[in-house]
Simulated assay, not measured.
Amino acid sequence: MIPQPSDQVSHRLRRGRAGGRPPAFDVEAYKQRNAVERCINRLKQWRGLAMRTDKLAVAYQAALHLASILIWARW
């Protein structure tokens, strides 16, 4: 969920059942979603993972684990 801009406070009454973003915003859920999306984008930088060139699921999973370890080790 995208946080509501502060300049759109008066328009909250028109949201909800009428459409648009829901008026509630969960900060913790947004932080977790952001972390997952960033992780996936970092993994996509590995060409073999992004293109899914491995034939076997075991080989793809091994490449995923290796890329995850190397990304984690850089931090």
Results as ranks from 00 to 15, higher is better:
V36A: 14
Q45A: 10
A62T: 08
A35R: 12
R14Y: 11
H65N: 15
R52K: 14
D26E: 07
R52N: 09
R15I: 01
K31N: 06
A62Y: 03
P3N: 04
N34E: 14
R42I: 02
S6F: 05
N34P: 00
A73Y: 09
W46I: 08
A57I: 10
L70K: 15
W46S: 05
A62R: 13
Y30G: 02
R42N: 11
A59Q: 11
V58D: 14
I40H: 05
L56K: 13
Y60F: 15
R17Y: 04
V27P: 01
V58A: 15
A59P: 00
G48P: 00
W75V: 07
L70C: 13
I40M: 07
Q61N: 11
H11R: 13
P5N: 12
V27G: 00
V9K: 13
A57W: 09
A29M: 08
A62C: 05
L56F: 13
R33Y: 03
V27D: 10
F25K: 01
K44C: 08
Y30H: 15
W46D: 07
A67D: 01
G16L: 00
Q61H: 08
A18W: 06
A18H: 12
A59C: 08
L66M: 10
V36S: 09
R42G: 04
A35C: 05
H11N: 12
I69Y: 11
Q32M: 06
G20R: 03
V58Q: 14
A73G: 06
R17F: 06
W72L: 14
H11M: 11
H65C: 14
I69P: 00
A59L: 10
I71W: 02
K31G: 01
S10T: 09
A35E: 12
G48T: 02
S68K: 01
A50G: 04
D7L: 04
Q8T: 03
Q61M: 10
H65Y: 13
S10M: 10
A63Q: 06
A18N: 14
P3K: 04
R21K: 10
A24Q: 12
R33Q: 12
L13S: 13
N41T: 08
K31W: 07
A24P: 00
M1N: 07
V9C: 05
G19K: 00
A29D: 12
D26S: 09
A29Q: 14
A73E: 13
R33F: 03
A63G: 03
S10N: 12
C39G: 04
I71Y: 05
Y60I: 05
I2F: 10
R74F: 05
G20H: 06
A73R: 14
D54E: 12
I69G: 01
L64V: 03
G19P: 00
H11Y: 10
V9Q: 14
A63D: 07
P3A: 02
V9T: 09
A50S: 15
V9G: 03
A50V: 03
K55N: 08
V36H: 09
L13Y: 10
R17E: 08
L13K: 13
I69N: 07
S10L: 13
G20C: 06
S68H: 00
I71V: 13
R33V: 01
I40N: 04
R21E: 01
Q8G: 00
D54P: 00
F25S: 02
